[in-house]
C-alpha cells in the first residue's frame, strides 16, 4: 500500500480502507481507519471555522457541510495552517456576499500575521506646509489591506460577530488596519480606496487627483485622519 492510496481513501469516504491494514484481532480496519479520516476532515473543518468566523456565523448550520466539502476538495497545500482556506472565496462563488465576506476574513488573517511596523507620527505630516505636504510619498503599514465589494462586507462582518444594526443595502470599500495586534475593518468613504491604493506609486497630490477622479467629494482630511489614527501609515518621504 502506498501513501497515495492511503491519502485517496482518507479524503473520499466512499472508498474502502486501503489494503494491508488490519485490526489486532485480524478483522478489517473499518472504524480504525475512520479515526484517521475523521481526524483529517474534522481538524480541517475546525481550522476553517476558526479562520472564517463571520462566514460560519452567517451560514449557520450550512457551514459544517460546506467546510467538509471544501476540506475534501481543497486540502491544505502547506503545513502552515494559518494560511489555510485561500480558495474559500472562489468555493463560495455562487453566494457572492459570502464569497466577499470570506475575502475580508482572509485579509484580516493576513493582517494579523503581517510584519510589525511602527506607526507614522502624525506631527511629521501636520507640521508640513500644504504645498510640501502634497509632494510627500506615504508608505502604508504591511498589515494594511484594502478591498472593495459590491456587498456591505464590513457591516456584515460586524453584525455577524458583534451584533448591531442591519447592514446597509450598498457595496462597501474596506480598509483593514492593525493598530496593535488586532486587525479591524473600517468602511471607507467615497474615493478613499482609490487614494490608498494610489499611495503605492504616487505622491499625495497625484493620489488625491486619482481619488477625485472617482469621487469628486473625496475627503482627504478625513481619510488621512483615519489612517493616522489606525496605524495604517508608517513612513513619509519628501520628494522634490
Amino acid at each position: 500500500m502506498t501513501q497515495a492510496e492511503f491519502t485517496a481513501a482518507l479524503l473520499d469516504p466512499a472508498r474502502p480502507a486501503p489494503e494491508g491494514l488490519s485490526s489486532p484481532g485480524g478483522g478489517a480496519p473499518g472504524k480504525r481507519f475512520d479515526v484517521y479520516r475523521n481526524n483529517v476532515v474534522v481538524s480541517l473543518m475546525e481550522a476553517l471555522a476558526a479562520g472564517f468566523p463571520a462566514v460560519a456565523a452567517l451560514m449557520g448550520g450550512r457551514f459544517k457541510p460546506m467546510s467538509a466539502a471544501y476540506a475534501r476538495a481543497h486540502p491544505p497545500d502547506s503545513p502552515l495552517m494559518t494560511r489555510y482556506g485561500r480558495r474559500m472565496p472562489e468555493f463560495l462563488a455562487d453566494e457572492p456576499e459570502l464569497s466577499d465576506l470570506a475575502r475580508l476574513e482572509l485579509a484580516l488573517r493576513d493582517s494579523y500575521h503581517a510584519p510589525d511596523a511602527p506607526a507614522l507620527d502624525p506631527a511629521g505630516l501636520t507640521e508640513l506646509p500644504p504645498d510640501e505636504l502634497m509632494k510627500v510619498r506615504l508608505a502604508t503599514a504591511p498589515a494594511t489591506r484594502v478591498l472593495r465589494s459590491r456587498w456591505p462586507v464590513a457591516s456584515l462582518w460586524t453584525r455577524a460577530l458583534r451584533g448591531g444594526s442591519e447592514a446597509p443595502d450598498r457595496g462597501e470599500a474596506v480598509l483593514v488596519t492593525r493598530p496593535g495586534f488586532d486587525p479591524e475593518p473600517h468602511v471607507l468613504p467615497p474615493g478613499a480606496a482609490t487614494f490608498i491604493l494610489a499611495l503605492e506609486d504616487a505622491t499625495l497630490s497625484d493620489a488625491v487627483v486619482r481619488a477625485e477622479g472617482t469621487a469628486p467629494d473625496f475627503d482627504l482630511t478625513a481619510t488621512l485622519a483615519l489612517m493616522l489614527r489606525t496605524g495604517a501609515l508608517t513612513d513619509m518621504t519628501e520628494t522634490t
Binding site: Y36, P76, P79
Partner: peptide
C-alpha cells in the same frame, strides 16, 4: 509519522509500516 502527500498537507500524524 507522515502528513504530506504530493501537494496535500493532511493536518494529522499518519502511520507508516
Amino acid at each position: 509519522a507522515w502528513s504530506t502527500h504530493g501537494s496535500a498537507f493532511l493536518n494529522d500524524l499518519l502511520p507508516l509500516p
